[in-house]
Design a binder for these strands. Structure first.
Length: 443
RNA sequence: UCCCCGGUAGCUCAAUUGGCAGAGCAGCCGGCUGUUAACCGGCGGGUUGGAGGUUCGAGUCCUCCCCGGGGAGCCA
């Protein structure tokens, strides 16, 4: 009977989310969420409730029923609850709206204190409690920014007629010989977790024309930096009949689209993250800079960073480039021997390849890497040999150059680095719900 | 793999030259009718990461190990 009454009551006020409260001023609503914090001043009590879309302050006075008044004092942090109250605008309330609470109904009351308080914590402790940390103040808006970045990517490609497709995660061979792969037992042989879907997208674009996919990739490098995870997400695209210049334009259009979309779509979240969105937008307003590898080396040296022509860019070099331009910069035409076997040589200079890395400003490093691909069997066989790679596992890939081969190009965008740049967070471990890093496999 | 820093209460940190292990927060008890990481008073809370060594005496010095953080390299 008592249960029946509660259900009736719940039906009286439709549940609404905190982000919709401005549409319900003056109405009684039902909020379903968790107790984020509470404050009390004796005869007036404040409960701050979060529901995934935002935080709202509930005001509890002795006018509410005695049980509710008592709950407002007693409920511990992260109690789950239903809360009925009338929405009103009040400048004293965080967010501008608050609830005059009529009733609180606990759903679950924790028996022990929530490990993560509102005061500061160390990174190690927070990472050990990542499953709970994601509920907290900065993490919720950050994960909502991530959602928006992924949504923007899908929307961009769909608007342009790309077909969303998939590449396998389990693969039998390395895509690029250099990077370390995670091996695993696959019946009686060794399989690996894919480090890139690119080779497969090259095949798929010959079927579908323009393709993209967004998925996890894996790198067994023992990197310990703020820019690296062992499992991260890439948005990769591959387009038949697209050549190098068009590839850069496509990447530039995509990156600008993502930034502009997210800046608007997650305006409130970026404010909570204290990201200066004007500064961010101004970085992508102008056309991106385009320089060659050779020019980049000179610029980097001009900033006092030592490097030889023929070296790949290290973190200090990337930072120097980002600082020099203050906006994204494409570095084109790398020396062939520091890039993978599948990139096409420049027709006017066989020492360099038709590739580009896109370096984000503000020290976020390379966020996109792409190239035009080798498109003749002769070139591909020659380059496999040059890189000392066996031909047999790549027979299917060589086949793509035997049956109606066309010029084609593509790229991969690092999702977490892009989110970090847009949100303005220093370490990419916070841009994914459960980061996988060296020595960090749990939770 | 290499370099640097750290490990003290549930959490964040202090502890002077080697000399009685402390504070804030959290928890518990009490107070406060507009709080904003509220505030005020009280209470409980410790194998100082582990092993060994030096010493009258080690959180502090030495050796080894474990764990974490930051950075490099490599990469997106």
């Amino acid at each position: 009977m008592a249960e029946g009454l509660e259900e009736m009551e719940a039906q009286d006020s439709r549940p609404v989310y905190v982000e919709q409260l401005d549409q319900h001023v003056g109405e009684e609503v039902l909020i379903q969420g968790w107790l984020f914090n509470k404050r009390s001043s004796g005869r007036i009590r404040f409960v701050i409730v979060r529901d995934g879309t935002g935080l709202v302050q509930g005001v509890v006075t002795p006018d509410a029923d005695p049980e509710t008044f008592e709950l407002a004092e007693r409920l511990p942090q992260e109690s789950s609850l239903r809360l009925w109250g009338t929405v009103r605008a009040d400048p004293r309330a965080p967010g501008g709206y608050e609830l005059a609470v009529r009733k609180i109904e606990p759903v679950h009351i924790p028996k022990q204190p929530f490990p993560i308080g509102l005061k500061e914590h160390g990174v190690g402790f927070l990472m050990d409690h990542r499953h709970l940390w994601i509920r907290m103040r900065k993490q919720v808006p950050l994960l909502r920014v991530r959602d928006s970045v992924l949504w923007a990517i899908r929307q961009f490609f769909r608007e342009r007629g790309f077909v969303a497709t998939e590449a396998p995660i389990l693969v039998g061979t390395a895509v690029e010989g250099t990077t370390t792969l995670f091996p695993l037992d696959y019946f009686d042989r060794t399989a690996y977790l894919s480090q890139s879907g690119q080779l497969y997208l090259e095949a798929t674009c010959m079927a579908l024309g323009k393709v993209y996919w967004i998925g996890p990739v894996f790198r067994a490098e023992k990197s310990k930096t703020r820019k690296h995870l062992t499992e991260f997400w890439m948005a990769e695209a591959e387009v038949a009949f697209l050549e190098h210049e068009g590839n850069l334009t496509l990447q530039e259009d995509l990156v600008r689209y993502i930034v502009e979309f997210v800046a608007e779509d997650r305006k409130r979240e970026l404010e909570l993250l204290e990201r200066d969105t004007e500064a961010l937008l101004s970085e992508v307003r102008e056309p991106f800079a385009r320089i060659t590898y050779a020019e980049a080396v000179e610029i980097v040296r001009g900033h006092g960073v030592e490097m030889e022509h023929g070296d790949d860019f290290g973190a200090p070099a990337e930072d120097a480039l980002g600082a020099h331009f203050g906006r994204p910069v494409f570095v084109e035409r790398f020396p062939a021997r520091i890039k993978p076997f599948y990139m096409k040589r420049a027709p006017d200079d066989p020492g360099v390849v038709l590739c580009a890395d896109l370096i984000a400003p503000e020290g976020y490093g390379e966020i996109v890497g792409g190239s035009q691909r080798v498109d003749t069997e002769e070139e591909l066989l020659a380059q496999l040999e040059e890189y000392g790679l066996p031909r047999e596992p790549y027979e299917w890939y060589i086949d793509l150059r035997r049956y109606g081969s066309v010029p084609h190009s593509g790229f991969g965008l690092g999702v977490e680095r892009t989110v970090a740049w847009i949100a303005g967070v220093k370490h990419i471990r916070e841009t994914i719900p459960f980061p996988r890093m060296l020595d960090r496999l749990e939770p």
